[in-house]
Simulated scan of single mutants.
Amino acid sequence: MLTETATPGDMPQRELRSLTVQCLSSPRGAQPARRHAVRWMGERGHPPASDVSCAVALVVGELAANAVRHGRVPGREFGLRLVLDRAAGALRVEVTDAASAKRLPAVAPSSFPEGESGRGLLLVDAPAERWGSTARSPVGKTVWAELRLEV
């Protein structure tokens, strides 16, 4: 399911645009989420090879892969939501899964994680101005990142 909205903001010249996508929570689920995000950003003036679209692809890909790997509930999808605020020069990326929110991601990722995985949030941290997570009721969590865009 793909939904796009345009919402007037507080100021007359301020407009928020958003994209909401539901993706299969499977090993290949991150790929379509990333494609939707890059295509949507391209339609808003940030071509696929631009620094902005590359940063968005990286953040969406990592958060979606984490939702599939750590937040997967069989038969349930994960959600991707992008909110573009041109006036503020910001993009918010949100990935929501349906798993029990017993363990939210660490606020500060480890600089030298052990093992073969655990570096994804370091990749998110690099282009993001800030990021975090929120528990959902009754279950699930949303992991979000905010990116600064050229105004």
Rank of each mutant, 00 (worst) to 15 (best):
A108S: 04
L19W: 01
A98M: 04
L63E: 00
G42A: 15
A128G: 08
L16Q: 09
V83N: 01
R130Q: 13
T134Y: 03
A6K: 10
E114M: 06
P47L: 10
H36V: 05
V52C: 08
H46N: 06
S25I: 07
L82D: 02
R39V: 14
G140L: 03
V73T: 00
S137A: 08
G71F: 03
A64F: 01
T134Q: 14
W40Q: 14
A90M: 11
R72I: 07
S25T: 15
G140N: 02
V83L: 05
A67S: 14
A33V: 05
P74C: 13
D125Y: 04
Q22H: 05
E15F: 03
E77H: 09
R28D: 13
R148I: 08
R34A: 10
W131Q: 06
L2R: 13
A65F: 02
R72K: 08
A67D: 03
S133C: 11
S111K: 10
P27K: 10
W40K: 12
R34G: 01
G120F: 01
V56S: 05
T20N: 04
W131P: 04
L19I: 08
R28Y: 13
V60M: 06
R17E: 08
A30P: 01
R86M: 02
E77W: 10
S137L: 10
W40T: 12
V56K: 01
G71R: 00
R81I: 05
L80M: 09
L121W: 07
H70K: 14
V93G: 00
R103T: 12
A65R: 06
E43R: 11
E15I: 09
A64I: 03
L122E: 02
A135T: 15
V107A: 14
E114L: 05
T96C: 12
K141T: 15
S117H: 07
E62Y: 05
V83D: 02
R34N: 05
E129A: 13
A101Q: 03
S117D: 08
A67I: 08
S53L: 11
S100T: 11
A55W: 01
S117Q: 10
M41A: 04
A55S: 13
P138L: 07
L149Y: 04
A101V: 06
G79V: 03
H46Y: 14
L58F: 06
A87F: 09
A6N: 02
A64E: 00
L104F: 12
P74N: 07
A87D: 08
W144L: 06
V52L: 08
T20P: 00
L123I: 04
E77D: 11
V21W: 06
V93W: 02
R148W: 00
R119C: 10
G115N: 08
P113W: 01
A135M: 14
P127G: 11
G79N: 01
T142V: 15
G118Q: 13
E62L: 12
P113R: 01
A98K: 00
R28K: 07
V124Y: 01
K102N: 09
E150P: 14
G9R: 05
L24S: 10
R136W: 00
A98E: 11
E77K: 06
S110L: 15
P12M: 03
A145R: 11
G9S: 10
D51A: 15
L24C: 12
L2V: 11
A57H: 13
P109E: 03
W131F: 15
P127F: 04
R86D: 13
T5I: 09
V56T: 01
G79R: 09
